[in-house]
């Protein structure tokens, strides 16, 4: 009986905690289906008639599909490059003991703590002014890879170190070159850690505002987080469509999270041990 009470107490506590973390989303969803008048008079009331119209209006006004496409192009490109280059470099760090490799590896790890603001202005100067990549997703993708590469090497290296060297040895004795060994034998074994890496990087790049805002300045190039900012600033008196826009903009990531949540939570823990 005492144990049953404990279970109920814990469940109630957990439900309260969950409500605290989810109520902003519930409010957003609820108010996206009301008129702006209903929203401002009482945000907690149910809509008198459900205003589905807020959604098509928000989609059209924020050029939702254009910014969705732009976000997708950037995120997919960064992710593909990262999951290709990161594990390859990590393999070298894990297997080749050479001062050149070790030096750069520790330097890269140390650079992970540098605040983005420390090189934000020179990035604009170098890539937009000097190299002429203004209003283009290319520097956003390239720099996105540069910012995530250290973490990806670090993450995959930990996993690689737990793969026994005997596997390398057997293959090499059979006359397999190091590069073929990696692609045929090592890389397939890395799938779980690559998935963790992928979801982690995808979330960061998808939600990035600052880097994209530095390089993309016309509406046809904007990503979703940038679009939210512009939309919320422009339509600052029309709240309900804005709520609909916010719902639309977080939906892709929410779906992605629900599909890969196990790996994301895993990535948080592994990413935290980097200290």
């Amino acid at each position: 009986m005492k144990e049953k009470n404990l279970h109920i107490t814990l469940l109630v506590l957990a439900l309260i905690a969950m409500m605290f973390y989810l109520f902003p989303f519930a409010l957003m969803l609820l108010n996206s289906l009301k008129t702006t008048g209903e929203f401002t008079s009482n945000p907690f009331a149910m809509p008198t008639t459900i205003q589905w119209g807020n959604y098509p209006y928000a989609i059209a006004e924020m050029h939702f599909f254009t910014s969705l496409k732009n976000s997708l192009v950037i995120t997919v490109s960064v992710c593909l490059l990262i999951i290709m280059l990161g594990p390859m470099a990590a393999y070298v760090v894990s297997r080749v003991k050479h001062p050149f490799v070790t030096f750069f590896y520790y330097f890269m790890i140390a650079s992970m703590c540098a605040p983005f603001q420390a090189y934000m202005i020179p990035l604009v100067k170098l890539y937009a002014s000097k190299l002429g990549f203004s209003n283009s997703p290319i520097p956003v993708i390239y720099i996105g890879v540069g910012l995530n590469i250290s973490f990806s090497i670090f993450l995959v290296r930990g996993f690689l170190n737990s793969i026994p060297r005997e596997i390398d040895e057997a293959a090499l004795i059979d006359g397999c070159g190091s590069i073929r060994l990696y692609f045929n034998i090592i890389q397939p074994m890395l799938t779980p850690i690559i998935i963790t890496l992928l979801v982690f990087v995808a979330m960061g790049v998808w939600n990035d505002y600052l880097l994209s805002a530095l390089f993309l300045n016309t509406q046809d190039k904007r990503t979703l987080p940038m679009m939210i900012r512009v939309f919320c600033a422009q339509y600052s008196n029309d709240y309900s469509p804005m709520m609909a826009g916010l719902v639309m903009s977080i939906m892709p990531m929410l779906i992605f999270y629900l599909m890969g949540q196990k790996h994301i939570l895993e990535g948080v823990v592994q990413g935290a041990i980097k200290g």
């Binding site: 070298v92 490799v101 750069f104 190091s178």
Partner: peptide, 23 residues
Amino acid sequence: LILIFFLPAVIIWLTAMVIPFIY
């Protein structure tokens, strides 16, 4: 291995973080 596997990552990192930082 260093040239094909490691160097690309190092170059991207140098050009996206280190050189801008020094600049």
